[in-house]
Amino acid sequence: MADKSFRRDMNYVPDRITKDARRPEHGPVDGELWPVEPDRYRLIAAPACPWANRSVIVRKLLGLEDVISLGQPGPTHDERSWTFDLDPGGRDPVLGIERLQEAYFRRFPDYRRGITVPAIVEVSSGKLVTNDFPWITHDFWHEWTDYIKPDAPDLWPAALREEMDVVMERIFTEINNGVYRCGFAGSQEAYEEAYDRLWTSLDWLEERLAGRRYLMGDTITEADIRLFTTLVRFDAVYHGHFKCNRQKLSEMPVLWAYARDLYQTPGFGETIDFEQIKTHYYVVHTSINPTQIVPKGPDPEAWLTPHGRG
């Protein structure tokens, strides 16, 4: 069964952007350090991708839009790269490239791994800086402090960090990545194991959130953002396309209310494009959906109904 289970390649370009290119207090330093500098970098983040969606939400919540520009590829790609097919002329208006692959190759001409989003590109050189998505959003909060808006939420509360790391690890392994383990399982046995693991953790969240508004208590943290980007795609994609079909998110009263609460919070719902999300999964994953037919539903207006969690 081991050979039939989905395994995500977690080897990313490990460079980090820090204040004065200093050694960061948290996390590994396995690559180069780049200095925080307004207007030097461009975040490339496709709306369809949950990992990229996370970076867009954090950038917006922290008020970093004026210091880190945003480029957004379209929802589909081929084996080569994400493309800027929704921009005029099919090119990113700042970097001038048709494919994100070009930024990777300018930095690493023989780059052989996947061309992933989110990615941060240096505007002047057009070269990739990093695509290490867990640390991109971590460093937005910890390193860009001089540019964060005064009323931004504390996404990494010091007093909760130890517990938060545990919660986020389970969310990543069992839910963010868990839906992919279901969708790309190569055998019935691998699929059923992944399915059971996923629903065990979704039930855990249903119970945890019954007694608190957000994952860590009364305020939004990065843990909520990491969970939200999977939940918001659940009924539209993962329930059917990835066979995560014990029940819909909209049939889990606590998680569904929690997800709508976040969706209706400024910085969250406006980053969601359900048509791009559905187009990406149902068109790109031809091994799962060879017809490439994109479903019409569900109705996104359901996300605007009262959640009752205030």
Rank of each mutant, 00 (worst) to 15 (best):
M168T: 08
R170N: 01
R170L: 01
F172P: 00
N176T: 04
G178T: 04
V179C: 15
V179F: 14
V179W: 13
Y180P: 03
C182D: 06
G183A: 06
A185Y: 10
A185P: 07
G186V: 10
E189C: 07
A190V: 12
A190W: 14
Y191Q: 07
E193H: 12
E193T: 13
A194T: 11
D196A: 15
D196W: 11
D196G: 13
R197T: 10
R197V: 10
L198E: 02
T200F: 13
S201D: 10
L205N: 11
E206G: 05
E206D: 07
E207G: 11
E207I: 13
E207Q: 15
R208T: 12
L209F: 10
A210Y: 02
G211Q: 11
R213C: 03
Y214L: 09
Y214R: 07
Y214C: 09
G217E: 00
G217A: 00
I220L: 06
I220F: 04
T221W: 06
I225D: 03
I225F: 04
R226V: 11
L227Q: 09
V232H: 08
D235R: 14
A236E: 11
V237D: 09
H239N: 07
H239G: 02
G240P: 06
F242T: 04
N245F: 10
R246W: 09
Q247D: 01
Q247W: 06
Q247R: 15
K248Q: 14
L249T: 10
L249S: 11
E251K: 02
E251D: 13
E251R: 01
M252T: 08
P253G: 12
P253F: 12
V254F: 09
A257S: 14
Y258P: 08
L262F: 02
Y263I: 04
G267N: 09
F268R: 01
E270D: 15
T271K: 00
I272G: 03
E275R: 10
I277D: 03
T279E: 13
T279L: 10
H280G: 09
Y281D: 06
Y281R: 07
Y282R: 04
V283I: 12
V284H: 10
H285A: 07
S287W: 00
Q292G: 01
P295R: 02
G297H: 11
P298Q: 05
P298L: 06
P298H: 05
D299V: 03
D299L: 06
A302Y: 10
W303A: 04
T305F: 00
T305L: 12
